[in-house]
């Protein structure tokens, strides 16, 4: 059985109702699943050796702000990029999160790679990863407010930096 079919069967049997739909745009397999199911799914990835999915290559996110049809499913999309070394094949797992309080469980207990990748997604897109050991800013400046990769963050907007006051220094410089 080809890896794709094997993976489809596997996803159907492990996820059940949590599997929303499957997408095969340009022969690139992606699974849309419910965000609650992601941790258990990844745990079976790590434990099940027949598929050999131990490689988390990337975590990223998409903001659908301004796209009315997509916003109905939830504004944010978290995209996990998995790779199977044995079958030399890549697939994506995607979860949709609501606009207010986007939150998903962290994968750091399973993959060390998730640590910085999740910090980056939190920093730039503002998606909270619960259970992350050190969810702090990684790329943007310590005193920058907001999450720059959100579509409603203006492209060339700069925060005023002239508010520094000797008597009342900002939090980071104290």
């Amino acid at each position: 059985m080809a890896f794709e079919d094997q993976l489809r069967e596997f996803m159907k049997s492990t996820l059940g109702d949590a599997l929303i739909r499957e997408d095969n745009f340009r022969e690139q397999l992606s699974f849309y699943i419910k965000p609650e199911a992601i941790f258990d799914l990844c745990q079976t990835f790590v434990e099940d050796s027949s598929l050999d999915i131990r490689f988390l290559k990337d975590i990223t996110s998409v903001d659908w702000y301004g796209h009315e049809d997509e916003m109905a499913d939830g504004r944010f999309e978290v995209v996990y990029n998995f790779y199977s070394l044995k079958h030399k094949s890549r697939f994506f797992v995607k979860c949709r999160l609501p606009e207010d309080n986007p939150e998903i469980v962290s994968l750091t207990p399973l993959f060390n790679a998730a640590n910085w990748l999740e910090r980056e997604v939190w920093d730039l897109m503002g998606i909270t990863f619960t259970g992350h050991p050190d969810l702090t800013k990684i790329l943007t400046a310590d005193d920058l407010e907001g999450h720059p990769l959100r579509r409603d963050f203006p492209l060339t907007w700069e925060q005023p930096k002239f508010s520094w006051n000797m008597d009342d220094p900002p939090e980071v410089i104290k």
Partner: peptide, 25 residues
């Protein structure tokens, strides 16, 4: 990772950065 939406600009361009991931170790 390029997410198109039917218009002439992408919704999302994500670079999977090798050095970033390698440096975390």
């Amino acid at each position: 990772y390029i997410q198109g939406d039917g218009t002439n600009k992408p919704v999302r361009v994500r670079v999977r950065p090798p050095s970033f991931v390698n440096l975390a170790v």
